[in-house]
Design a protein around this nucleic acid. Structure first.
Length: 282
DNA sequence: TGTATTTGACCTGA
DNA sequence: TCAGGTCAAATACA
């Protein structure tokens, strides 16, 4: 079954205008929905009741996520998005920084007062996407974690990432990841994207990654859901992972490429992604 | 040794 | 004053 599922990830949407990409993303989401249905049928054949139940539940969540993403994209298409980005603009959850991450890192002394230009509340025009995902995947961008914060009334801390090229290429892309309160056995993460990547530095993994790895990814996606995906994610995690699974996921940056181009089979069964050399790393 | 993460302090808007 | 977002030294790891 895995091979069939993989086909969902094979078609590469054209990368042209944002509307083209959104269109492609919609197509992929539709396809994903159909495949999720297919997967459900297959999963129902699992003899072990417990596993079957869990798998069916997970597939159901996949479908839900697909459908909600789909409707978001569609409504965005209808409401004519901003020309520059194919963002799924949603209600801005909070304040978004407009700090360009220009990386003024020469402050010799720590904690000395620096004039930092940030928090442009007026920056409401910033592209924003929010994605609910339960299955972290690699989006091929290089994210670097730069902060973590406990949020009021939230069970889990919010993790802050910026593009790994924010300094080099002045790429303003950022994302916030927050695990939702665990109402379901499977952790669900709200991923908020801020700004579009200007670095355009995607990892060239699709050329080398085989459909096999894609298949295993898809399969393991289910497996990983049975056991928390967070734990599967972090070979690079060292100390806090055992107690803080949230951080574990975070180290890999949470990917959710649904909106992007869809086919990023980069997470191995262990949750370990493709290794990248420094500077291109993840 | 270089790179990425952790973590507490700092900053800013509400 | 509070809460959220960011910085950057310290630290861990490959």
């Amino acid at each position: 079954m895995s091979t069939r599922l993989t086909s969902a990830t094979k078609s590469q949407p054209p990368r042209c205008s944002s509307s083209d990409r959104m269109d492609a993303a919609i197509q992929e989401l539709r396809r994903g929905t159909r495949l999720a249905d297919l997967l459900r049928e297959q999963v129902e054949l699992i003899p072990e009741l417990e596993r079957r139940h869990a798998a069916v539940a997970n597939v159901g969540e996949i479908s839900t996520a697909m459908e909600s993403s789909l409707s978001l994209l569609q409504s965005e298409m209808e409401h004519s998005s901003s020309p520059e980005v194919g963002a799924v603009a949603m209600a801005a959850p909070a304040a978004y920084s407009s700090d360009g991450g220009t990386g003024e890192r020469n402050g010799a002394v720590a904690r000395t007062r620096r004039v930092r230009h940030r928090r442009g509340k007026h920056g409401a025009e910033l592209p924003i996407k929010e994605i609910l995902t339960e299955a972290p995947k690699n989006d091929r961008f290089h994210w670097r974690k730069y902060g973590e914060k406990n949020i009021l009334n939230a069970e889990h801390p919010r993790l802050y990432y910026k593009c790994g090229y924010s300094d080099d290429h002045k790429c303003p892309a950022k994302k916030y990841v927050q695990q939702q309160s665990n109402s379901s056995p499977t952790p669900v993460f709200m991923v908020t994207l801020i700004n579009e990547h200007t670095c355009e530095t995607l990892f060239p993994d699709e050329a080398s990654s085989s459909s096999i790895s894609a298949a295993s990814h898809v399969l393991d996606f289910t497996k990983a859901s049975l056991s928390p995906p967070v734990m599967a994610a972090a070979p690079g995690l060292k100390k806090k992972e055992e107690e803080d699974s949230m951080s574990a996921v975070s180290m890999r940056s949470y990917p959710y490429d649904e909106y992007l181009s869809s086919s990023l089979p980069t997470m191995s069964p262990d949750g370990d992604q493709v290794k990248f050399s420094p500077g291109h790393g993840w």
